[in-house]
Design a protein around this nucleic acid. Structure first.
Lengths: 198, 198
DNA sequence: AGCAAATACTAACAACTGTTAGCATGATTT
DNA sequence: AAATCATGCTAACAGTTGTTAGTATTTGCT
């Protein structure tokens, strides 16, 4: 009758949520059973329900935790008066890259499995993301107006930036080629070139 | 007792496969039931088995059809002697973009659901993709050696290029902003800038 | 029109799904 | 030591899963 061991600062629910993120990422939300999760945690399936109320709740936890992390960082950037538009975009790209490197399980689940969120969470989530994208576009458009950023289609640029970092998923599988730092520098350089005035 | 209507050039199996691509894309492979697919096709679930041998076979069909399309185009590029390295990469990017625009269902399933392929198909598929990436890297590295392409980390560039186009998924959901042609030009410009010598 | 092949149907299967009820054990507080 | 509460267990549920068997019906060919 082994208890779920929980780190000092994390509740047992957090342990389960992180295990869920790992499995949801590997096998997908639908294909991950509560019995799989139970094995991963080292417990019987029914025991999980002492800590969570449903499988869906785990997905909500993961998706909104990640979404809030990104939104909070964007808030900071918008309020930061030391950086110009291009520097803000670069810093946001770097933040995305680091999230994809350090918290790949949760980030991938948020990207790939959020469609399985129940209402009203799904609608809320999609709205939050739409707003996030709009705010990024606004930063770029302001940069263009101020003459700091090349004249580009802000919409297409944001689409490109946010998706480009997804390549990191494959880097994780075959690490050796290149270090995290090299990868970050290379990606940033690649993505920023299209925005810089010549 | 409605029969599956098949276009002149497509077998009934093709009709089922395309319907499967649509559903696998929308709901995911695991969450799509054979009864869902049957409704989409307009038939009873058991009837599908007169045309296919299993749910897995449908996924194989979709993934390898897409993979072969990309590989065939890459073959053409490698043999094309009229284009230099940078032009080849640009043409490959354009091909990816058009595939994401015109055959989004199949392409998305190939990207997101291929992990559900059974062995030995999964291994074969992953190998094919690894080789595809290597060949792209080789084109870039040759371009660098010939002084046509800026000195970049070929590995990171290919990762970026192949993932960036995934943003098109979101464009599909909210079309009006920008036309397919504008999107293609904007993306190509953005992605090629990082490779061009200044 | 009649025969054969293709394709549809209904019914059923065993395995698996998320979740609940009821009870036992563990740790913590009194 | 007794009591309390958190957490674990087993057993079971109703519903869904991919798939098969057996049979009826439609289509295309002679």
């Amino acid at each position: 009758m082994a208890r779920i061991r929980s780190k000092k600062n994390g509740s047992r629910k957090d342990v389960i949520t992180l295990a869920a993120a790992k499995l949801f990422r590997e096998k997908g939300f639908s294909a991950t059973g509560m019995r799989d999760l139970a094995v991963e945690v080292g417990v019987e399936a029914a025991s999980l329900y002492n800590h969570i109320s449903s499988k869906s709740e785990l997905l909500q936890e993961i998706c909104f935790r990640v979404a809030n992390t990104f939104t909070t960082h964007l808030n900071d950037m918008e309020l930061n008066e030391k950086l110009d538009s291009l520097e803000k975009i670069e810093e946001i790209i770097r933040f995305h890259i680091r999230m994809w490197i350090e918290r790949i399980d949760e980030v991938l689940v948020t990207n790939n499995e959020s469609k399985y969120l129940n209402e009203p969470y799904l609608t809320t989530f999609l709205n939050e993301r739409r707003i996030y994208v709009k705010r990024l576009e606004a930063i770029i458009e302001l940069g263009i107006k101020k003459g700091i950023i090349r004249k580009v289609q802000a919409y297409a640029v944001v689409l490109t930036l946010m998706s480009a970092v997804r390549g990191i998923e494959f880097w994780h599988r075959t690490k050796k080629n290149i270090s995290a730092e090299e990868l970050e520098e290379s990606m940033v350089m690649n993505l920023i070139s299209g925005l810089q005035k010549t």
